[in-house]
Design a binder for these strands. Structure first.
Lengths: 345, 345
DNA sequence: AAAAGCACTCCCCTTGCCAGAGTGCTAATG
DNA sequence: CATTAGCACTCTGGCAAGGGGAGTGCTTTT
């Protein structure tokens, strides 16, 4: 298994192959490459290099006597050596500018983001606000609705609002007491810590007759203080773009199905983008996590305000996506997020 | 233009053609039909009837010497004469039972509904809660978040909760006053009426220096009291099912794109299902409203609690959908909605 | 080491052909 | 008089054969 050090010539040809394949979608052959190559190498020489690259695992042939197709390894290498100093196209920039006007809260921002990303990448744009347990509590608010119904609103420091209607029979006075207790004691705590501590206190007071704790226990048990928002918090847009690119109908259907299962997307973003690093992350080979996503990649970044991770945004597209452009756009919006939400604090 | 009265024989043959076409998707010819027909009519006789039905606009031929395909007119007739007394399949019923467990609020119900409908119809399920101006106000709640940010929560009698973050600089004390004023004066009013009356009062007091009205005016202008929830209130699920049915890629893409534009769906449901009638409504020929929806139909019903329309639910699918089954399912869930939300009041 | 030449492979598009299903019309039949 | 049988005709769709095109690996030449 020869592991040939990739020299200058190999690098150049590999890059050219990847770019040509991204542009055309056809396996690329030595002749085509020799024509478009600035320094005129003959097809035969290129063939030699190609053979080496195939051995090294960067190229594949759909069948004998077809051109070469980049492997995931090749894409990784290609992305690696991108300079990353490209500028955003004017068109994309103006789309972005127009879209984020007068945004105040995280949810809205995420919704627009998924839309904008799908527009400028011509692929699937996804964005979500982290509703995880590490958010800090701002305050809670309970209100009696009809008989036996209670509205619970939880607001986090990051501006996320989660409301749910519970089936409970508690008087407004008791609700006010409970809210007050929680707000006074736990403002600024993480949701996680608050829930744990509350559980502890409930347990402790269980034996005694404590009206307040009884209310809180009921609220707690009905999930009034959970911030997970099952499917709402993630926005997926541009699925229709897949139809144009994906030829295999079977695969297309699997893809759409996966995109509809928001939970899967949440896990995906969580797994790869829950990081404090600012950089855009490119994940090649999504099929390890989701089989239906074979030949698809994720280009995303965490959405941060200052040092705090508040969500993530990404483009999901085929391996032959325009990496440079997409990475630039993702990075741009991630920075915009920080800027917009910082200034409004 | 002979308008032949549709007699018993015509009715039977037309029904058979529609059903065969729904089952197979192929143009149906006289020979096939004669075989499957219980009273053995010869192909020739059937051809005669078919010719009449073609003249009357119920059938079409893709080309000479192909079988016949039902026109929209035929589907309308077919649906018309369905008895509608079919029972739900056991499988569907248990899917439904499992899905609506422990539901308390309208939003959740709608979300599940779209999911369930897509599952049992193998098509696109949609559902929305009406966020229209005719909802009655339950109460509002304002809370100061960070600097210059205010959380506004509006709750309607029907249990809909709408929250938004505004960029405003008002003290919590003033917010409390404003909320109290609105709650005391307008509980039970329709959103529409409340907004109109508030606008009037703001106008009236404009000249005088009234701190309270100033706050309310600011809140009003920032949209704190609007209940339209741009894209959240409508749930669309099962788009991936279209891939299996729709052959034309171009069309498929248009369809998916339309389904992504939630606003279009809201208008569609609003146009056809904002009715107090209980009955399931079948709309054949959606392309009049949405060109991309050619050859698609809508089978839906209003979601009502008592006499009040609180939303709508529907299945969107191709003309060759299983009408009977889908209608039964839609009707079942619509009744379930009434039942579940009534008992919890 | 790079290029040229050559024989070979494989895909895929085009063409031609034929079976099958369907139709409308006309003539026969109960 | 309604129904059926027969017939000539039409259109589609699948299948097979054939050939051009693009590409490869290997060998030889520069």
């Amino acid at each position: 298994m020869p592991s040939p050090s990739i020299g200058e010539r190999e690098r150049e040809i590999l890059t050219a192959i990847v770019e040509t394949f991204i542009a055309t979608g056809e396996p690329v052959g030595s002749r085509t490459l020799s024509r478009s190559n600035r320094e005129g190498l003959s097809p035969a020489s290129i063939r030699n290099v190609m053979a080496d690259l195939s051995d090294a695992g960067y190229l594949e042939q759909p069948h004998t006597s077809a051109g070469r197709v980049p492997t995931p390894e090749a894409y990784r290498y290609y992305v690696e050596q991108l300079t990353g100093k490209a500028r955003l196209s004017h068109e994309s920039e103006s789309i972005i500018q127009d879209s984020f006007h007068g945004i105040t809260d995280v949810q809205e921002f995420m919704e627009r983001t998924s839309h904008v990303l799908s527009l400028i990448s011509h692929n699937v744009g996804v964005a979500m606000a982290t509703t995880g347990p590490r958010n800090a509590l701002e305050h809670v608010y309970f209100s009696r609705l009809g008989d036996q119904k209670v509205l619970a609103v939880v607001v986090t420091k990051s501006g996320l609002v989660r409301d749910r209607v519970l089936r409970l029979d508690i008087s407004q006075a008791d609700l006010d007491l409970a809210a007050r207790y929680i707000n006074d004691n736990f403002r600024g705590w993480t949701m996680e810590a608050m829930r744990a501590e509350l559980a502890r206190r409930i347990e402790q007071e269980r034996s005694e007759y404590d009206r307040l704790m009884k209310s809180i226990e009921q609220l707690y048990n009905q999930g009034a203080l959970a911030t997970e928002q099952p499917s709402q918090a993630v926005y997926v847009e541009g699925a229709s773009n897949l139809v144009a690119n994906e030829q295999d109908r079977q695969h297309l259907q699997e893809l759409l199905k996966t995109l509809e299962e928001k939970q899967k997307i949440v896990e995906l973003l969580g797994a790869y983008l829950d990081t404090k690093q600012e950089a855009v992350r490119v994940v090649i080979g999504l099929d390890e996590a989701l089989p239906s996503m074979r030949n698809f990649v994720l280009i995303g970044a965490p959405a941060r305000v200052g040092d705090e991770v508040m969500g993530s945004l990404a483009v999901i597209g085929p391996t032959r996506i325009d990496y440079q452009h997409t990475m630039t756009a993702v990075s741009y919006i991630a920075r915009l997020f920080d800027k917009i939400l910082n200034e409004s604090e």
